[in-house]
């Protein structure tokens, strides 16, 4: 569960970077921006799930 989560996020980042340069060279800058935003949303959803599991673990361990 742990290490492949990091790989997933990093791979999304790299794919977005490659697509950005690709789209920018074929002067479609707005699609490049849309790809960046889509990648960001995916990353944020994964991070939100992981952070919520971390915080709930902290909450019921330290009974905050």
């Amino acid at each position: 569960m742990e290490i492949d989560l990091i790989f997933k996020i990093a791979s999304v980042g790299i794919i977005v970077a490659v697509l950005n340069t690709l789209l920018k060279n074929s002067n479609r800058d707005e699609q490049a921006m849309m790809v960046t935003i889509a990648g960001l949303i995916i990353v944020l959803m994964v991070i939100a799930k992981e952070i919520s599991s971390l915080f709930s673990a902290v909450r019921n361990l330290f009974n905050l």
């Binding site: 990091i6 996020i9 990093a10 999304v12 980042g13 790299i14 977005v16 970077a17 950005n20 960046t36 990648g39 960001l40 990353v43 944020l44 991070i47």
Partner: peptide
Amino acid sequence: EKNPEFALGT
């Protein structure tokens, strides 16, 4: 260096 917001996410 390509896009820093993903670096923060990682």
